[in-house]
Design a protein around this nucleic acid. Sequence first.
DNA 1: TAGATTGTTAATCGATTAACAATC
DNA 2: TAGATTGTTAATCGATTAACAATC
Lengths: 206, 206
Amino acid sequence: MPQDIPEIIIGRLPLYLRVLTRLEKQGQEFTLSKELGEALNLSPAQIRKDLSQFGELGTRGQGYQIGFLIEKLRQILKLEEIRDMAVIGGGDVGHALARYEGFTNRGFQVTNIFDSDPGKIGSRMTGIVVQSSADMIQVLRENNIKVAILTTPAESAQGVTEQLVEAGVKAILNYAPIELKVPPDVHVEHIDPAVYLQKLSYYLEE
Amino acid sequence: MPQDIPEIIIGRLPLYLRVLTRLEKQGQEFTLSKELGEALNLSPAQIRKDLSQFGELGTRGQGYQIGFLIEKLRQILKLEEIRDMAVIGGGDVGHALARYEGFTNRGFQVTNIFDSDPGKIGSRMTGIVVQSSADMIQVLRENNIKVAILTTPAESAQGVTEQLVEAGVKAILNYAPIELKVPPDVHVEHIDPAVYLQKLSYYLEE
DNA sequence: TAGATTGTTAATCGATTAACAATC
DNA sequence: TAGATTGTTAATCGATTAACAATC
């Protein structure tokens, strides 16, 4: 991975990984740019172009060996070790995330949950004891946690974000419906179901 | 909204709406392409270009009147009436979505929940009785529901999708970590937290 | 009117695609 | 070897940006 890879390509790699993992589970050993393209609605040329950024990952005439390509993509995306994550907010979303089983086999695990509600602090969610927001910075630092999932209400999201930044968190998955201001070395991705629904709405008829 | 607006622009309109709503709530009456751009990390030129697709929505020298622009964007995105949605799957994610309070003021409400587990059917989630998947097609048709949120396991997602299509659903928000095959008149958006986390992972240091 | 900011055109930039040589 | 599919170059396409005239 030499030069600067465009972000748009990096964003597609997890999708490739998702398809490849499914194909592998189905017992397939090789795949083609054509097959990957059909699964993801992308052109075969684009798949090849994307993958060629990282070396010669396929074999001419044969296609791509699935196991090898998965391994390679995991390396590129730095997914070889399971990363610890903190969930901020012990509401419904935080709860669902803490219980979500799809993380571990994709490189992540929730190790900490923080909430500011005294009624929740000390209770357990899937074996994880909810900790006080007051201790958050310290705990994140001590455990060297770099990834956080933000599920607080919009009003407190920016304030919490500043604490996360202070604690050394470098990646934030933001479920609060508000844009976060962060320093350039901190990366944020948004998940806002209403945004997607509103986009879908445009394409509805009536 | 005459010609064909590029999908990439449509996808940004909900973000504009989100910022505008926040500014309005903060008591602001006018905004500038500069301000919107700073909030969303987009250039002012892009904001103006996007909005100009739909007519002259601003006033030269003055900027954009927030209330008017919100109204206009709601029209464009067909958000003027609250749309009914079905949640498929009564697990943690389905449960969190049914209880999510952010939908109504953004144009949507969950009216139905379906699950195949006899232990869940008939129980209530936030006042909504969980219905049997066996009745799904009929109920969706009877209620003319066009939007569904899919939260089943990956294995059953494609099968359920085919039922949704059969029932006349035209927009699917897919939480299952798998690509769905749908006819061209059905639109799908994906929410897969692991995909975003994997992208974020690339930008982490070690 | 002067000052400000939009709307819009033209230029730039970057991403996608087509096409084919390389090679398994 | 012949057939197939990648890797890669060049062409195309589309999106973003710069710049400025229009106009409030």
